[in-house]
Write a protein that binds this DNA or RNA. Structure first.
Lengths: 104, 104
DNA sequence: TATGTTAATCGGGTTTTTTCGATATGTCAA
DNA sequence: TTGACATATCGAAAAAACCCGATTAACATA
């Protein structure tokens, strides 16, 4: 858990938004994808395309942003067929919160 | 309190360090400046020169970093004679914690 | 008032970030 | 196996961040 990498990831409007959207996916991504398994739905993953549409940036940019958020540890991903679903890594986010409370 | 500006300010090793140093100034800045009023000492302000020395970067860079941290709201400054003392703005930092706990 | 000291600002070379379009990879379905 | 679709990766132009030395501004004091 590198704090600098986390802050870098969060210091971009779009990436910060993505993290917040994924806190309540059902609220921000109306259409429940048909290809989404019930299990996946419970875990709250959202596929890249839906995030691209919502963010209004290019597919390549969003894909890179998601990778960056994942490398920072804030997101985790799971591939199902041709779709990759991203969801928050709540464990790391809680850890971040604790370390900030202590150190910051 | 702009979260993006705060994250940008924190996404640099030196600036993050400065903020942490200022959490316990007496621990990280040994020499209590003679020119430091008792009142100032209680509030824990540290002058720019001491931070420059500790950080090992140029005076201009540190001055700019401090300004940036201040603009983000994380630090506050007070000028006494030819010295400017910087200290943490604990109110804002607490606000930041709360907003992160809620929104992030 | 002239000098020295502290801190802020300016201008700029270098590196990193941002964001894109094009292309590659992986997967499903006919 | 071919075509269509989702996502990842590549290469690059533009913008921003990094960090410096030089200069300016503000202040103290002799």
């Amino acid at each position: 858990m590198n704090q600098i990498d986390i802050f870098k990831a969060l210091s971009n409007e779009t990436r910060l938004e993505i993290l917040k959207w994924l806190k309540e996916p059902e609220k921000h991504f109306d259409k429940p994808s048909a290809h989404l398994s019930k299990n996946m739905n419970e875990k709250g993953g959202v596929c890249v395309g839906d995030i691209v549409e919502k963010a209004g940036l290019s597919q390549s940019t969003i894909s890179q942003y998601l990778t960056m958020l994942q490398k920072a540890g804030l997101l985790e991903s799971e591939r199902h067929g041709q779709w990759t679903y991203y969801r928050r890594n709540e464990t790391i986010i809680k850890e971040l919160w604790n370390s900030l409370k202590e150190e910051l």
